[in-house]
Design a protein around this nucleic acid. Sequence first.
DNA 1: TCTGGGGTCCTAGGACCC
DNA 2: TCTGGGGTCCTAGGACCC
Length: 416
Amino acid sequence: MIFLVDCNNFYVSCERIFRPDLKNVPVVVLSNNDGCIISRSNEAKKLGIKMGEPVFKINKFMKENNIRVFSSNFELYGEISNRVMKSLSKFSDDLEIYSIDEAFMSIKYSSDYSIIAKEIISNIKTDVGIPVSVGVSKTKTLAKVASSIAKNIDQNYSILKNELRIFQSLRNLPVHEIWGIGYRYSKFLNKNKIFTAIDLVNRNKNWILGNMNINVLKTTQELRGVECFPIINVPPSKKSITVSRSFREDIFNYLDLEKRVNDYAFRCSKKLREEKLRAYTLSVFIVTNRFKNNNKSYYYGFLSENFLASTNNYIDIVSMSNKILKKIFRRNLGYKKAGVILSDLSDINEYQSSYLKLPSKAQDSLMNSIDHINKIFGSNMVKLASQNFHDLSNDSRKKLSKKYMSSWKDLMDINI
DNA sequence: TCTGGGGTCCTAGGACCC
DNA sequence: TCTGGGGTCCTAGGACCC
């Protein structure tokens, strides 16, 4: 059987580990720039706060209802996530970490899956302090269905095993709640009189394939109990790496924009180096505010270029990002967001040869020194002169919690 | 004027996920 | 005034090859 273990309200639950006073009160976590709601406690959900809601629209409401608000502390959430996954790995070797707060695993031959589900829930609660839900069924897609049932019942786990229970669950499941059926497909399906998972399962396979794609067909097969999405326990290597940000205020000035783009290129390179990869292609994009002027003057600049040979050199990557930015920049526009994408990635150990560019040992050791210094003295100790001198990344996260797990001075004091 | 058959690769756009 | 960030996969159509 396939188990889906899903952390409840993950980011909020992370904040609560260190703040027991936040139990049973409404709590939300915000996106970058403190712009949108991205995680809500059950109490906040009950008050009607929606996922993705812009903060400025509900600021007043949140104050009136005494909702506790946090900026996103991804460093913390990442560390907690690692511990959850580690705790989980005791239960099965066949484990797929699907996202920061979810994992699939397969467990064979048990006479009572509910015992295992209970054990998982209590172990993660005591090991890490995070509440989780467990959905169990024959395929990943059905385990997802089970997990969403689990979230709404006290015991926090649900097992969909016999045909009748599966049928009843699918009959009550609107198509837009199926894993793999999003906004567009559910609109399309509704138009064709398909409203529930059972309606979809009963549709002809060729119709599904002809009107949507192979993955939707696989999804319906999974709902029938036929496995099409196996558990992938060795994570495939990354195909692209992105760093992008929205700005608090529109940027008109070229040099201001360039500094930001250079920052993102540098951080993108850093991620690339941490993954032990090289990149052959770099893309830069800049966009104006899509909410302004009824979208009339909307501009989306995007361009990709290739290096002479795959690289992980900070200087190569940042200067290429500059070169691309110059080509897509249009004057007199207010930019709201920019980003840098590295793609066409290859393993650092793969043999590199190009008659256009010879590898340079001196450059490699310079790059390693940058990494080394930044690792020891803090990640912004060495940068390129074209970047922002001051680190802007925390400017707009006004309600950030402490670095409980990554900074000596933020370790908690315990009074005995 | 008539105009084959069998392929590969790349890309943009659209869909989805958390 | 203020609206997130980071990913993957599929498909149709165009360009090209012999």
